[in-house]
Design a binder for these strands. Structure first.
Lengths: 412, 412
DNA sequence: GCATGTTTGTATGCAATATGAACAAACCTT
DNA sequence: AAGGTTTGTTCATATTGCATACAAACATGC
């Protein structure tokens, strides 16, 4: 069985106030250093010093601490021909420090073991029938996959937690799914369903679009950018936004519900009760309807439409261009509101991109505020694994925070 | 002449990296403590300890430091009948530590002296002719007012900087106004115009709606809330958003330009080139048009409409209700996107609130996502001074940051 | 091949800062 | 007036990063 250290970690007494103690300093520095390694990969000691502004002594002490706890390893310096003593490369130890990422999507279920540094060590994806699979069944199946992956892990591997992505509204704080229309779930206690299988591992649940933007902004099409909008369609439409800081989650955790941005006062009635929501115009059903397929055709119909477009059917392509107009209207508002550096289209929108990308760009060049017209629109670069990687980042964010890392280092 | 300390303050060499030195600790603690006093008013030492989680010794040392530099003063404890030694009250010294807030609005110009803690010590507001007043004239007039207020100040008063609110696009970093359609300004170097009059005082320029949300979320209708949307109309329409952190400013500083959220595909052409922007539906011109006044009637026409509504003209009131429908559509999208705790309506929207508030609430109860329907919509509580107070908060934010406060304390 | 210059890791003394314990001060209740 | 409670003050202590000096490991030039 794999070793679990999180019990001690989470049991550490929390600092209630905002004041910083003497040890907060070290915790924070450990956190920023390890986060740097996690996000940007291996780095020389000297480079870490330059990035953090800390002295060689301080870096040295911290690297030793982290190494003695098995979080980083030092390897031979790069021989790059510069003069001076070469600086050893510090790298995060992915194989011994992992989290588990999972997603419960409409058409499939995925589980992955993600190492420190963001590498996907193992992953499994299985089809999921769309018709009425109850939460217990789906989650139970995910738990089976998790057990399978865990049994293959080296027993010395530390598992820091489990992150789960769900296409629905997640209430902040509580790990409950309030509503997932396209899974036909309502008020599901995800944590309760997972807990028996994962014992006391920390669990984090996130919206699929929210974790999508985490993945794309850290490892995907928006890598390195700090202002990112990720717009995704998995039957429904959702967005995740990062605007210069952490993920925008809103007061109750419902931030980014752009699927219900009103775009067409003359549009169809939406499941939410309103009229002309973005989701009713650019969701899967709308796309199928415009292309001439039955709106409830599901995954198979979507594949057929995409194939027809790929093989050059002008009817379908024109329908998709018509479809894209509403996407452009929605994007216009979002770009004007958020002023991001880049927009990433995921899910169905990413798959449609080859056919509608140019049309969208043309529309935006007219509609968007002049100062924001150069905002690039790109398809997802990670694709199917985006939600798995994003869900794991949910866990890493907590592991790499000052409050968790400090106590860890002290145990070493 | 008032003393200026900011030269030394700003000249402090910046820490380039993200690592924390030993002194960062004290700086950060000083900053959080003084920010607490600034935002929540006087507080006992013991309470400060509870809020920050720091020990009595630490609080004592910091209070002494801040007091010896004249930033705080201790006064007699509250006799509230609890046992134990009473704890002296620590309060920010407003009269000796101030910033200057200014605004250049469409119809008026305002300047205020705002003390530490947020109190408006003195303020002046003057009408501004709407027709083509050039930037040099407007700014020059503001500078005159600033000089006047400064000459009345105690010479021992420290002025930490000047904050200016402008209804236009402000490019991040540079203190330039790229575009202010309703002032008819384009690419104006605000800093250059101010610099001769304010010498080396730090200057901060912000969008009027952005500073508006700062004011309302700290001292106004949304006091204490951390997720706030402030939607304001001053001829044009703008919004400021706070979502759990600092002001959302976007990648280039154009965040919150919700005036150009598309709401009506069949609407009128907007100045930005697009069609049916929120601004063309709920801006001043649209309101006047619907009420039957000339769209370019300006402030006088607006006053007349409001008076007609107040005296019960059902034609005007019905026109305003019609008007409010589009406001509701815009608000629906914004509420669904941002998931805020409260929405504050400012400027013209705040003045219209008595007539349309109920209608808007009714519309939103149908349109907004069910989970978000309880989001309260309220009018601005600060009113005319919101931009002045908000502009000053722009300066205070910098003063109360760890990077500025540390060196200050060290001089004492 | 050796001397020189450059960059970096390591070791040691130092300064800054918050903690914790002991004590005194100032309030309440009885 | 006595006892209990809460808080400010003082001082020794632990933690942490910095500065300096020195050694190690590279490149370059003669």
């Amino acid at each position: 069985m794999t070793k679990v250290v999180t019990a001690e970690v989470t049991s550490t007494k929390k600092r209630e106030g905002s004041g910083m103690r003497n040890e907060s300093l070290r915790n924070q520095n450990l956190a920023t250093m390890l986060r740097l390694l996690h996000l940007e990969g291996p780095s020389s000691r000297a480079n870490l010093g330059r990035r953090t502004g800390l002295t060689r002594s301080a870096i040295g002490g911290m690297v030793n601490d982290l190494a003695s706890f098995g979080l980083v390893e030092e390897s031979a310096p790069n021989r790059d021909g510069t003069p001076g003593r070469p600086s050893p490369i510090v790298e995060p130890v992915a194989r011994r420090n992992v989290v588990i990422g999972a997603d419960l999507m409409v058409d499939s279920i995925g589980v992955a073991v993600v190492g420190l540094g963001g590498s996907v060590l193992h992953s499994i994806r299985r089809d999921r029938p769309r018709n009425q699979q109850r939460p217990e069944e789906s989650v139970g199946y995910v738990c089976q996959l998790i057990q399978k992956l865990r049994s293959d892990l080296d027993p010395a591997t530390r598992i820091f937690g489990v992150g789960v992505a769900v296409p629905g509204l997640i209430a902040k704080g509580t790990q409950r799914v309030l509503l997932a229309p396209n899974l036909k779930w309502e008020n599901v206690d995800i944590e309760g369903l997972f807990r028996p299988a994962i014992a006391d591992l920390p669990l984090f649940v996130g919206n699929d679009a929210d974790v999508g933007v985490l993945a794309e902004s850290r490892r995907g099409a928006a890598a390195g950018k700090s202002h990112v909008l990720y717009l995704s369609c998995e039957v429904g439409v959702g967005a995740g936004v990062i605007s210069g800081g952490p993920l925008l989650s809103g007061a109750r955790g419902f931030g980014g519900e752009v699927g219900h941005l009103p775009v067409n006062p003359d549009g169809q009635r939406c499941g939410c009760g309103a009229v002309g929501c973005l989701e009713t115009e650019i969701g899967e059903r709308a796309m199928l309807r415009r292309a001439g397929w039955p709106p409830d055709g599901g995954r198979q119909a979507v594949d057929e439409v995409l194939q027809a477009a790929a093989s050059g059917s002008s009817d379908v392509i024109n329908a998709l261009l018509d479809h894209s107009r509403w996407l452009s209207i929605g994007l216009t508002g979002l770009i004007n509101i958020f002023d991001v550096e880049i927009v990433v289209l995921g899910g169905l929108l990413g798959r449609l991109f080859p056919f509608i990308g140019d049309a969208v760009a043309d529309e935006l060049a007219v509609r968007v505020l002049p100062a924001l017209r150069d905002t690039p629109i790109v398809p997802s670069a990670i694709g199917e694994d985006a939600t798995l990687i994003g869900a794991s980042e949910l866990v890493w964010d907590t592991v790499l925070s000052d409050t968790v890392l400090g106590p860890l280092g002290r145990q070493a």
